[in-house]
Amino acid sequence: MALARPSPVAVPVDDARLVELVRGGDSRAFATLYHRHARYLAGVVFRLTGREPDVDDVLQETFLDALSAIHQLRDPAGLRSWLAAIAVRRVHKRLARRRRLRFLERAVELVSPKASDPHDQRRVDELYEVLETLSPDTRLPWVLHHVEGETLPAVAELCNVSLATVKRRIAEAEEKIDRRLHGAR
C-alpha cells in the first residue's frame, strides 16, 4: 500500500470516503477518522468497563485493530458500528482478564466509575458493583442494550452472537442485577 502525501483538503467528507482514503494510505484521513470517533468510543468503553484508565488502552487497541483490518471492512459507511464492535471485543477481553486476576488474587476490587453528577454516584456505585460480578458475556450485552440504548439486533451484531443468545444473556444479567440491587436496598 502506498503512503500518499496528505490530501490537500483537510475537510473530510463521509466515513466511507475517509475509509477509502485510509486504505490508500492517507494519514490525514486516518487522523480525521480517529478524531471523529474517539470521543464516542471513549464514552462507550467507559460505561462498559467503568474504569477511566481502561478507556485509553481500549481505544488504542481498537484503532490499531481497525487499521490492521481496514481492508476487511465491508461497509465503510458503517465504520462507527464496526469500530464499536472492535471496542466491545477488546473490552470483553479486558473484563475477562480482570475477572481471572481477581479470582487468582481472591480479592474483590471495588470498581466504580466517577459520576459527573454527584447525585448519581451512589446508584453508579451500586450498579457497577453488581456489574463487576457478572461475566463479560452477560455484562456487555446488558450495558449495551440498557445503558447505551442499542437495539437487540445491534447488540447481537456488536457482540458477534445470535439474537437469541443476546436475549438470553441480557435476561440472565437482568435477573442478577435485580436480585443484587433489591438485596442491597
Partner: peptide, 28 residues
C-alpha cells in the same frame, strides 16, 4: 426495577478532552 441506576449510568462520561484524545493518538 433499576431504572434510576440505568439513568445514572447513562449519564456517565469519561474525563475526555482534546489533549487526552491526542495523547491516545500518540500512543497509537
Amino acid at each position: 426495577e433499576h431504572d434510576e441506576h440505568v439513568r445514572a449510568a447513562r449519564r456517565l462520561a469519561p474525563a475526555w478532552n482534546e489533549l487526552r484524545e491526542q495523547r491516545v493518538l500518540q500512543r497509537i
